[in-house]
């Protein structure tokens, strides 16, 4: 199944796109999405470990399943100040 994933802040810079399409086969949890993002968009690897992922504007933990029509968004933690 294909998922649209919206990219924000440094994730957007690294992906060089407002959103990317991720193909998942079999189980569709946030952990699966992370793995697929790393494989299909290696440019995102520097931020992957701590990447915050929201599903329908709710913080999503790794074991959470993703519904087909869900809105997915990614935000890396921001350190400066």
């Amino acid at each position: 199944m294909d998922f649209q994933v919206k990219m924000f802040a440094r994730a957007r810079d690294l992906a060089d796109a407002d959103s990317v399409t991720v193909a998942l086969s079999g189980s569709c949890t946030i952990a699966d999405l992370r793995r697929a993002l790393s494989e299909q968009y290696p440019a995102l690897q520097p931020v992957m470990t701590n990447l915050l992922i929201a599903v329908d504007n709710q913080y999503a933990t790794d074991e959470m399943p993703i519904a087909p029509q869900a809105e997915i968004a990614c935000f890396p933690p921001v350190s400066g100040g």
Partner: peptide, 10 residues
């Protein structure tokens, strides 16, 4: 908490 960098922050 707040963090900011470039043109973005949280």
């Amino acid at each position: 908490y707040a963090g900011c960098l470039g043109s973005h922050g949280q």
